[in-house]
Simulated assay, not measured.
Amino acid sequence: MNDELLERFSRALVMLENLGPRLDDLLFPRQALVDGERVSGSQPKSKPPLVVPIMDLKVDAERCLQFWVNQLAALPIPPGISDAPLGKHRPGTGIGARAGWLRERLVLLACAPWAEQAALEVIDVAWLVAETVEPAGRGEPVVPPTWGTARVIASWLKLLGAPLSRTQLQRLVEAGELEVSAQPDGSLHIAFDDALALARKRSDQANRNLGHVVI
């Protein structure tokens, strides 16, 4: 892993460590005291201008982080690297706890054979969480990226009601049905418009198949 990607990885973990609890606040609004009585918060939703199903994003982020926690915990500690704080105890629950556990073991993470893949996935997740929790005060709507990794594109397709999973997108790329662009950091980016058109085509086809009545 090059220094630039390692720095982005570190920042993404710090971002998730800080914003994870705020994502929980959106999902479970705190109760406020008004004239001595508790009043429940607003319904769970992301801040404008990006509208995201909070539970889906939370689950996806936790699964991503937990996967790399498990992968890292299964690795032997390389020679020359101290066992502290790289012990095998597992993190607490929640996005922030998992991200913090990984950040504290960034030296060990960087030595893993799958380090670049972990970095790219965590960076994508951090971007989605940040866009949901604090959209940087933008007044204009957040639009889908022209190009993005399979995880980012899959998230946008789901939001737009034309879901294709990350695995499905990767299979379509391997089959030559989707165009990709190689990035300097080694990641492959998918054209969003092509993915959306293909997702809608598959959805329309599935609906037509359901509409056929077998006599």
Rank of each mutant, 00 (worst) to 15 (best):
P49D: 09
L23I: 07
K47W: 04
M15G: 05
D24N: 04
L50N: 01
S42G: 14
M1Q: 05
V14D: 04
A32N: 14
S10Q: 03
P44Q: 03
L33G: 12
R38S: 15
L23A: 05
M15H: 07
L6C: 05
L26W: 01
P29A: 11
V39W: 11
F9H: 10
F28D: 07
L50W: 12
G41C: 11
P53W: 00
R8I: 05
R8W: 08
L33R: 15
E17V: 04
V39D: 02
Q43E: 14
L5H: 09
V52S: 00
S10Y: 02
M1L: 13
E7W: 06
L27M: 13
R11S: 14
A32G: 07
A12T: 08
P29R: 04
Q43L: 14
L16H: 03
P48C: 03
L6V: 07
A12E: 03
K45P: 04
K47V: 12
L16S: 00
R22K: 08
L23Y: 01
P44H: 08
S10H: 11
P53V: 06
S40V: 07
L6S: 08
S10G: 13
L16R: 04
Q31K: 13
A12I: 10
R30F: 03
L13W: 02
L26Y: 00
G41F: 04
K47A: 09
S46V: 06
S40T: 14
V14P: 00
E37N: 11
V34I: 15
L5V: 12
L33D: 15
P48N: 05
S42C: 07
S40A: 15
M55K: 02
N18D: 15
E7N: 09
V52L: 01
R22F: 07
D24E: 14
N2G: 13
A12W: 02
L5Y: 07
R30K: 09
V14I: 06
D35C: 10
M15F: 06
L27Y: 03
Q43C: 10
G36V: 09
P49V: 03
R8S: 12
Q31H: 10
L6T: 05
A12G: 07
P48M: 10
N2D: 15
E4T: 13
D25N: 07
V51E: 13
K47F: 10
P48S: 10
F28V: 14
S40G: 06
S42E: 14
G20Y: 00
N18V: 09
R11Y: 03
D3C: 07
G36I: 05
L16K: 01
Q43K: 13
R22Q: 12
E37A: 12
P29L: 08
V14K: 06
E4H: 10
V39F: 08
G41H: 06
D24M: 04
M15S: 01
M1A: 12
S42K: 12
M15N: 02
L50K: 01
I54C: 06
E17A: 08
L50G: 01
L16M: 06
K45E: 15
D25W: 00
L16T: 05
L13S: 01
P29N: 02
G41L: 06
A32D: 08
A12L: 06
S46H: 02
R22G: 08
Q43T: 10
P53H: 02
V51N: 10
R30S: 09
G41A: 12
R38T: 07
S40I: 00
P53F: 02
L6M: 04
R11G: 10
P48F: 13
P21N: 01
G20R: 00
K47M: 04
G20V: 06
